[in-house]
């Protein structure tokens, strides 16, 4: 069985690209870019403001990835998987929480001191109930990503998967999300080579 990339999104802290084309370019940088982009893409989800930057990044990227789709109507919510990797995990929020401990520990920071929370926010926003996990790895590993996600699809543990990478630390950010389906009307096969090509391309935008 072959799986395919039907859309991909890149958020690099200055712009949002969809399928390689510029969708939104902001003027702010760092965390302010995320708030600016929220308005720029017309997202209406007040809970966004309560999220930490990593979750905001993942929610924004997913919003663009699924724009115009009704993914949990097209598929059972239980059949939509989310598999994301990250280099710095929740470190940005961990550090800010550590600072808050000196005065008064912040409950709203504490709840974001796990990387899986960004996936939880994505699932809540989109109504997704399928298998999900976040792997922490220093470098993006297309071979691992392709192997893990294709395994899910082959084994029938998911019918569609949001697959990619999200990373945020001290204002620097990068998100690269792909929608992986069994639908052959696609941008390319979901395999190590294509993932690597698309991931590398984002740095040229």
């Amino acid at each position: 069985m072959q799986s395919y990339i039907t859309r991909y999104v890149q958020v690099n802290g200055a712009a949002i690209h969809v399928d390689g084309g510029l969708y939104y370019r902001g003027e702010a940088s760092g965390a302010e870019f995320l708030a600016e982009a929220y308005k720029g893409i017309g997202l209406d989800y007040p809970k966004f403001y309560k999220m930490d930057p990593l979750s905001r990044l993942a929610v924004l990227a997913t919003e663009m990835l699924l724009k115009g789709r009704k993914i949990t109507q097209e598929y059972k919510p239980e059949d939509v998987a989310v598999i994301v990797t990250s280099a710095h995990s929740s470190l940005d929020t961990d550090l800010r929480y550590q600072q808050s401990v000196a005065t008064a520990p912040s409950p709203s920071l504490f709840v974001y001191t796990l990387p899986n929370v960004m996936i939880g926010e994505v699932c809540i926003r989109q109504g997704i109930k399928g298998e999900n996990t976040c792997f922490v790895s220093a470098d993006f590993d297309p071979e691992f990503q392709a192997g893990y996600v294709n395994g899910l699809l082959v084994e029938g543990r998911a019918e569609v998967c949001i697959s990619g990478r999200a990373d945020y630390l001290r204002g620097g950010m990068n998100a690269f999300f792909m929608l992986v389906e069994k639908n052959p009307a696609s941008l390319g096969e979901y395999n190590t080579q294509t993932i690597k090509q698309l991931y590398d391309r984002q740095w040229k935008n």
Partner: peptide
């Protein structure tokens, strides 16, 4: 206003701080 349990904890912190 739609606040939740985490917000309640933040309000406790606000009162203290």
């Amino acid at each position: 206003l739609g606040l939740d349990s985490i917000d309640a904890l933040e309000l406790i912190v606000l009162l203290q701080q």
